[in-house]
Design a protein around this nucleic acid. Structure first.
Lengths: 207, 207
DNA sequence: GTGTGTGAAACTTTTCACAGCA
DNA sequence: TGCTGTGAAAAGTTTCACACAC
């Protein structure tokens, strides 16, 4: 067991968790090889990744599926719920607000914020859209841990500033812009155009 | 100038492209330091990344912005248009279909496919939703290069199979599942729950 | 002087290969 | 025998530091 889990490994733990969930309920143990095949990675990588959390496998047998599921969940901090706010309730923001997968996995949406006056007061998925004017206070009051930015690029930085001022330490940014945040805030970017441009590179090399 | 561009660099080229686009129109040259600040990365990294494409900077001056923009676009294969099909037109698929950023950047949506009979024939963003039954032929006929999978997890593999059979070499997968595709097909995964779980890990470590 | 281009060093991540335990 | 756990090697990536071109 090592001091700290490498970033690359943290990025794969949710993947293993998903694979474990997809296992037939009758199967109680799983080998690194099977997990590797499901996750489409190398078996040695699976073993090394899992070993960072401690040694939960049995030599000659494999890993006890239910136990491993729990260990990964605990390591990822999924044994508690986290509150989430979405800033920017356009097409994408609405789609995310309606995504059932969040609630199931312990991410509770407790606020939808938008800047457009005609959007405010509308209801999406049981939540009333609020004005971004009250973002900071609402985030602080409701103890929001994660902010999702689906605002237009021009407004994304203000959205992030409001979230950070309210105490948010983690941001998932869908806006096509690079956010400036203090070093203690973790930002993950999901950028559609960038993904397509990367795919374009690999297409191009074929011709 | 090196033989081949490293994956990590390919992943950042679209980022630099975005930063160049955000530059004030009056500014004709840009230094690695300024680009690094905008992209929130290290300046040496910017220089090394750009050097893989050849040497387009001027010592003591920096990079000619317009020229660099063109070089990166060419390297990424963005000097031509790519046709895109979306499979699964639920909330997320619809949101993506309506995203203007695609067309602006040379990605033309030429097909929307869904399995639900009541969705077929409906119009989204000027395109009629078609049945997945005709996916393979339509993809082949229209020379679709990139497939976007926004189908539910249970149907995502079939969607990918149809796309690949029709000749698609690049897939952007939003479904929470690991796709099995031939090695020549490039898949990029965008997984909401996984991103939140990773953020959860970094939140957890704070307490 | 200024800021690129790049070898070399440092660090991270992946893969190998095998000892060791059930 | 079968499969984990892990040192060590290999590969990939980042950062440093400075020669050199403008």
């Amino acid at each position: 067991m090592k001091k700290r889990i490498p970033k690359a490994t943290v990025g794969r733990l949710p993947l293993y968790l998903r694979c474990l969930t997809d296992l037939p309920p009758t199967q109680t143990t799983v080998s690194s090889e099977q997990l590797a095949d499901m996750a489409r990675v190398n078996a040695a990588k699976v073993r090394k990744d899992l070993s960072y959390m401690g040694s939960y496998g049995t030599r000659g047998v494999g890993y006890e599926a239910e136990h491993l599921r729990f260990q990964i969940s605990r390591e990822l901090g999924l044994t508690r719920d986290w509150r989430v706010a979405i800033v920017g309730v356009g097409n994408l923001g609405s789609a995310l607000a309606g995504y059932a997968g969040f609630g199931e996995r312990g991410f509770e949406i407790v606020g939808l914020f938008d800047a457009a006056p005609d959007r405010i007061g509308q209801q999406v998925n049981g939540l009333v859209i609020e004005s971004v004017a009250g973002l900071e206070e609402a985030v602080a009051e409701r103890e929001v841990a994660i902010g999702i930015v689906t605002a237009p690029a021009a407004f994304a930085q203000q959205a992030a500033d409001g979230l950070v001022a309210g105490g948010v330490r983690s941001i998932l940014n869908f806006a096509p812009t690079v956010l400036r945040v203090p070093p203690e805030v973790e930002v993950r970017r999901v950028d559609l155009s960038m993904e397509l441009q990367i795919l374009s590179y690999y297409l191009k090399s074929e011709f």
